[in-house]
Design a protein around this nucleic acid. Structure first.
Lengths: 182, 182
DNA sequence: CACAATTAAGTTGTGTGCAATTGAATGGCG
DNA sequence: CGCCATTCAATTGCACACAACTTAATTGTG
């Protein structure tokens, strides 16, 4: 330990917060990448990347979906999804065709090969779960916690974006500041 | 709801796992990106990206560090750090110089400007914390949980890499499949 | 000392993630 | 009907992440 000595600097609560901040944001970042790494190894057999697997999970539930809906499920925009879906299409797992009723929209649909892949994917979750060493209940609790966090963070981000405040001093606004748009 | 109907498919525990898997891996992924988004907005003022901020946090603690050590702290390799550090150097926040004692190593050191930036960064954690709506204690608990998870996942990944099994059909090995090595 | 193995950074290539922009299609409104 | 704002997907540009490879320096061994 023994951090850098900042001359004329007492150890203020701010410094502690900075250290804590380092820890929580790093922890989440690291956990996400560690998860990614484990999935990478397991999904290699299926020829999928982790984000591609997430897309397939949604499609296995819904079969056909416009890109927009897919993006809402995964919180990803077309800038990410378009090239990803093109790769899935090149791999023969999905087909993309413009909707007849709304020419702006593109429907993503599983091919037979894409449907068939699901059978092989059924083994993935067990391998992941055993990698975590967590039980189903622990996983559920952690998930609930993370979802809380995501909801709060998204709301805060939307709020900040809405008026790009000078910096901090925003009123907490008590009630539901939530999603004015979308 | 009402997932796709897989003809001739009963709803097995595997299906439930697949849904749960979707939820946990998605939750972590989403939380990480939500965090990233909030940081992005706040760090814009400092001219830093989120990973750059992580690097600066480490340097504010250690002042000078070889790239290797930096990578160990952050679990990042030179493929990620080299270009990132080059950008920080271009921004005038760090200097990189080859170590005199070991010409392979590159020491990363804060410039005065880099040290000065710390004062402005002291406000970041409070703004983040207020965005999460979590208290210090909740954050600490979540962090502990995530670190557990990361440790388990890294161990599992190292193990898998070690022998890169054929694919699925490994014997479940009965008892604790967990961490034979490491 | 010579030489193979190891180690540290850097480089290349692929795949996200996201902001900003583009272009086509749609819907609303006078 | 004509026009304009909105919506959706795709594209562009930038910054990670990470595997695989390259290059240079160091270490270990005979």
């Amino acid at each position: 330990m023994a951090g850098a000595s900042y001359p004329g600097h007492m150890n203020t609560p701010d410094d502690d917060w900075l250290r804590l901040d380092q820890q929580i944001c790093f922890s989440l970042h690291a956990a996400s990448r560690a998860f990614n790494g484990v999935y990478r190894g397991i999904l290699k057999d299926l020829g999928l990347t982790y984000p591609q697997y997430l897309v397939m999970l949604v499609l296995w539930e819904h079969d056909e979906l416009p890109v927009k809906k897919l993006g809402e499920h995964l919180r990803l925009d077309s800038g990410t999804l378009s090239p990803l879906l093109k790769r899935l299409e090149a791999a023969g797992l999905v087909r993309r065709e413009r909707s007849a009723r709304d020419e702006r929209s593109v429907e993503v649909r599983l091919t037979e090969e894409g449907v068939a892949l699901r059978a092989r994917a059924l083994q993935v979750p067990r391998r992941i779960a055993s990698s975590t060493g967590f039980g189903a209940e622990e996983i559920r609790m952690l998930r609930a916690r993370l979802d809380e966090l995501t909801t709060a963070l998204d709301a805060a981000a939307a709020l900040a974006e809405g008026q790009d405040g000078p910096s901090a001093a925003e009123q907490p606004s008590g009630a539901s500041p939530g999603l004015r748009r979308m």
